[in-house]
């Protein structure tokens, strides 16, 4: 089954790889190496004095209750975002799969939120839900709900979870829809002839066959919630109230850029790097293996 393209020399394949390699080295390996180096150093903001401190930055992080709180927030946030971004998109995909007329219009509209940058999504949700000037926010207050995510930690977390999940639904929708369309119609028709109800057909046939897609999306969504939601947090809550919405990647930015603590921030990025490597490894082990290239 294995297919190979045979090049006559080595130079040509290397030449073809060069652009991609340069991009990878400049934008991935080089910064990663710098983060590794800075994570074991203590340096003032201007780089006037640098001191090797070994694992002190890491020790500092794990002794910092704010960091541990941030780990907890990140896990709650990512799991909630992943679940809330996956379930509605599966429902929408199943619905859209049945639509006959105007299917493309529905699909385009459903995918649209994915085209919005996280920062813009954050601003949109801010203008909707701010207790003072948000349209929905002031409506909630008018009907007697004490809506004030500036002080209420649970409301704040809920808001950023919804905003982050909403943005990801379009992406998940696309994959689910593709997954659904790849399921042979004959299987479903056969089940229908055997008398299986619609919900039984879905749970016994469609859902299991979608499992690889679902698992892939679960990993992608967790990675998204961990790393790509900075713009939402920055624009809606800035990590507050207290530290209720301070996820790990926000803290990396905050300590490094606002706080100018390069060593501590680099050490946190190294930990995040380890997390993303682990997630990618899981994905390859369980998902990519089943994918058949050829």
């Amino acid at each position: 089954m294995e297919r190979r393209v045979i090049f006559s020399g080595r130079l040509f394949p290397i030449l073809l790889l060069t652009p991609q390699l340069i991009v990878t080295i400049v934008f991935f390996f080089w910064p990663a190496a710098q983060a590794l180096r800075q994570s074991v150093e203590r340096q003032d903001a201007f780089g006037l004095s640098t001191e090797f401190v070994g694992a002190a930055n890491f020790a500092g992080i794990f002794a910092d209750p704010a960091y541990l709180a941030s780990v907890e927030v990140s896990f709650v946030f990512s799991v909630a975002v992943a679940v809330l971004a996956l379930m509605p998109s599966l429902l929408l995909a199943v619905m859209a799969d049945r639509v006959v007329r105007g299917a493309n219009l529905y699909k385009t509209l459903l995918v649209l939120p994915y085209a919005i940058a996280p920062a813009i999504a954050g601003v949109l949700w801010l203008f909707l839900f701010n207790p003072s000037f948000g349209i929905v926010g002031s409506l909630l207050r008018r009907v007697g709900i004490d809506w004030n995510y500036l002080l209420d930690a649970r409301q704040a977390l809920l808001l950023v979870i919804l905003a982050a999940a909403w943005k990801q639904i379009g992406y998940n929708f696309l994959f689910f829809l593709a997954g659904l369309q790849a399921i042979p119609k004959s299987l479903i028709e056969a089940a229908a002839l055997d008398g299986a109800s619609a919900s039984r057909r879905f749970w016994r046939i469609v859902f299991p066959l979608l499992a690889p897609t679902s698992f892939f999306l679960l990993v992608v969504n967790i990675v998204y919630a961990f790393f790509d939601t900075f713009g939402v947090i920055q624009n809606v809550t800035q990590g507050g109230p207290g530290q209720a919405t301070q996820i790990l990647v926000y803290k990396v930015w905050y300590d490094g850029v606002a706080g100018l603590d390069l060593g501590g921030s680099a050490a946190q990025s190294v930990i995040l790097m380890a997390i993303v490597i682990a997630l990618t490894a899981i994905q390859f082990r369980f998902v990519e293996r089943r994918v058949h290239y050829g």
Partner: peptide
């Protein structure tokens, strides 16, 4: 800059 944020965080907890 960070001390101000810490103060704001604690004040938020007090006001809540």
């Amino acid at each position: 800059v960070q001390i101000r944020d810490i103060i704001a965080q604690d004040l938020e907890a007090v006001f809540a």
